[in-house]
Amino acid sequence: GATAVSEWTEYKTADGKTYYYNNRTLESTWEKPQELK
């Protein structure tokens, strides 16, 4: 079936920290989303 993983994109900030952005909800988070675990 369809999965929600594709909504999240992993980015890195200029200082090398990783964060996650959800293209559907426009939410961003420092925590790894449940969908990616």
Rank of each mutant, 00 (worst) to 15 (best):
residue 1 G to S: 11
residue 1 G to D: 12
residue 1 G to V: 13
residue 2 A to R: 13
residue 2 A to Y: 08
residue 3 T to I: 13
residue 3 T to W: 04
residue 3 T to S: 11
residue 3 T to H: 13
residue 3 T to K: 10
residue 3 T to P: 13
residue 4 A to H: 14
residue 4 A to Y: 05
residue 4 A to L: 12
residue 4 A to S: 13
residue 5 V to C: 15
residue 5 V to Q: 14
residue 5 V to R: 10
residue 5 V to Y: 14
residue 5 V to K: 15
residue 6 S to L: 07
residue 6 S to T: 11
residue 6 S to E: 10
residue 6 S to K: 08
residue 6 S to Y: 08
residue 6 S to R: 08
residue 7 E to D: 13
residue 7 E to Q: 06
residue 7 E to F: 08
residue 7 E to K: 03
residue 7 E to V: 06
residue 8 W to T: 00
residue 8 W to K: 01
residue 8 W to H: 00
residue 8 W to R: 00
residue 8 W to V: 01
residue 8 W to I: 01
residue 8 W to F: 02
residue 9 T to A: 10
residue 9 T to Q: 10
residue 9 T to M: 12
residue 9 T to E: 10
residue 9 T to V: 15
residue 10 E to L: 04
residue 12 K to M: 11
residue 12 K to Q: 11
residue 12 K to P: 03
residue 12 K to R: 13
residue 13 T to D: 14
residue 13 T to N: 10
residue 14 A to I: 11
residue 14 A to E: 11
residue 14 A to H: 10
residue 14 A to M: 08
residue 14 A to F: 04
residue 14 A to Q: 09
residue 15 D to Q: 07
residue 15 D to I: 03
residue 15 D to S: 08
residue 16 G to K: 02
residue 16 G to D: 04
residue 16 G to F: 01
residue 16 G to I: 00
residue 16 G to E: 03
residue 16 G to T: 00
residue 17 K to T: 07
residue 17 K to V: 09
residue 17 K to N: 07
residue 17 K to R: 15
residue 17 K to H: 08
residue 17 K to G: 05
residue 18 T to R: 05
residue 19 Y to C: 09
residue 20 Y to T: 00
residue 20 Y to M: 00
residue 21 Y to T: 07
residue 21 Y to G: 02
residue 21 Y to R: 07
residue 21 Y to S: 03
residue 22 N to Y: 01
residue 22 N to W: 01
residue 22 N to I: 00
residue 22 N to A: 00
residue 22 N to T: 00
residue 22 N to V: 00
residue 23 N to A: 11
residue 23 N to H: 14
residue 23 N to Y: 09
residue 23 N to P: 06
residue 24 R to P: 02
residue 24 R to C: 15
residue 24 R to Y: 12
residue 24 R to E: 09
residue 24 R to V: 15
residue 24 R to L: 14
residue 25 T to E: 01
residue 25 T to A: 01
residue 25 T to Y: 02
residue 25 T to H: 01
residue 25 T to Q: 01
residue 25 T to S: 03
residue 26 L to T: 09
residue 26 L to A: 11
residue 26 L to Y: 11
residue 26 L to M: 15
residue 26 L to H: 15
residue 26 L to V: 02
residue 26 L to W: 05
residue 27 E to I: 04
residue 27 E to M: 05
residue 27 E to D: 04
residue 28 S to R: 12
residue 28 S to Q: 11
residue 28 S to N: 05
residue 28 S to P: 03
residue 28 S to Y: 14
residue 29 T to E: 03
residue 29 T to Y: 06
residue 29 T to D: 02
residue 29 T to L: 06
residue 29 T to H: 07
residue 29 T to S: 12
residue 29 T to V: 12
residue 29 T to P: 01
residue 31 E to M: 05
residue 31 E to R: 04
residue 31 E to I: 10
residue 32 K to E: 09
residue 32 K to G: 03
residue 32 K to N: 06
residue 32 K to A: 08
residue 32 K to L: 07
residue 33 P to Q: 02
residue 33 P to G: 02
residue 33 P to N: 03
residue 33 P to T: 02
residue 33 P to I: 03
residue 34 Q to P: 15
residue 34 Q to K: 09
residue 34 Q to W: 09
residue 35 E to G: 10
residue 35 E to Y: 07
residue 35 E to Q: 07
residue 35 E to D: 12
residue 36 L to N: 08
residue 36 L to R: 05
residue 36 L to T: 07
residue 36 L to Q: 07
residue 36 L to P: 07
residue 37 K to C: 15
residue 37 K to I: 14
residue 37 K to W: 12
residue 37 K to T: 15
residue 37 K to A: 15
residue 37 K to V: 15
